[in-house]
Computed example of a mutant assay.
Amino acid sequence: MRGTKANHLEGGIRVPFIARWPGIIKAGSHYPHPISTLDLLPTFYQVAGGNIETVNHIDGVSLLPYIKGDNNDRPHQTLCWKKENRAAIRDGDWKLLRFPDRPAELYLLNNDISEQNNLAYKKPEKVRELLQKLFAWEPTLDRPLWQLKRQYEGDAMKRMDTYRKPID
């Protein structure tokens, strides 16, 4: 797989996850669907006896029904990642990468786990669909505390739009 930590290629996103739970998880088993580290909190909470229905404002899902085999669906139909102005979205087995300096890339991971066959030019409707989902997700994110407040971005754009002559 291509990629490294801190990028959105599969080599940067896919991390091996090993779990041992005698009597619940069968030794040597393999789970085929992607999960998120955000799923660990609700899973551990439910395993400890907590009622997951009473927990508000968490992004993960409890993996307990998937671990026990009560639910064979994907825990997440869609997963998104963002770092600065780069982002990725995985919807089922489709994955779109958005970059600030080049066109988006599109991969069908069940046929191309190493992301070698960019399908963006062959599937523009899928690119548009995934970009729309990604753009709908991004405004729901909390702004990192170390970045400027969003209000300053609008002010910066107004200054940029009213700029008329270069400074000597």
Rank of each mutant, 00 (worst) to 15 (best):
residue 165 K to N: 13
residue 153 E to V: 13
residue 79 L to A: 03
residue 127 V to G: 09
residue 74 R to Y: 10
residue 150 R to S: 15
residue 40 L to M: 15
residue 91 D to R: 05
residue 22 P to H: 09
residue 126 K to S: 05
residue 77 Q to E: 11
residue 8 H to W: 02
residue 87 A to T: 06
residue 98 R to E: 03
residue 78 T to G: 00
residue 30 H to Q: 12
residue 168 D to P: 15
residue 64 L to M: 14
residue 162 T to L: 13
residue 92 G to L: 02
residue 101 D to K: 07
residue 73 D to E: 14
residue 59 D to R: 13
residue 113 I to Q: 08
residue 32 P to R: 06
residue 77 Q to T: 08
residue 141 L to D: 12
residue 103 P to K: 07
residue 123 K to R: 14
residue 88 A to F: 02
residue 27 A to V: 07
residue 95 K to D: 03
residue 82 K to P: 00
residue 133 K to F: 02
residue 154 G to R: 12
residue 29 S to V: 06
residue 161 D to C: 00
residue 63 L to R: 08
residue 167 I to H: 12
residue 111 N to F: 03
residue 152 Y to H: 15
residue 80 C to S: 10
residue 64 L to A: 12
residue 14 R to A: 05
residue 56 N to R: 13
residue 77 Q to H: 06
residue 8 H to A: 08
residue 107 Y to Q: 05
residue 43 T to Q: 10
residue 7 N to G: 08
residue 111 N to M: 05
residue 137 W to H: 14
residue 102 R to P: 00
residue 128 R to F: 09
residue 17 F to P: 02
residue 39 D to C: 14
residue 135 F to Q: 11
residue 36 S to G: 06
residue 43 T to A: 10
residue 125 E to F: 03
residue 123 K to T: 04
residue 23 G to W: 10
residue 94 W to K: 04
residue 105 E to N: 05
residue 140 T to E: 14
residue 114 S to F: 06
residue 150 R to T: 13
residue 18 I to L: 13
residue 120 A to W: 03
residue 30 H to M: 05
residue 32 P to Y: 04
residue 35 I to H: 04
residue 155 D to R: 10
residue 165 K to D: 11
residue 39 D to T: 11
residue 7 N to P: 02
residue 159 R to S: 13
residue 1 M to Q: 04
residue 154 G to I: 06
residue 13 I to C: 01
residue 5 K to G: 08
residue 69 G to H: 06
residue 127 V to S: 10
residue 156 A to D: 10
residue 15 V to I: 14
residue 1 M to P: 04
residue 120 A to V: 05
residue 33 H to Y: 15
residue 119 L to K: 13
residue 8 H to D: 01
residue 95 K to Q: 12
residue 70 D to S: 08
residue 132 Q to K: 12
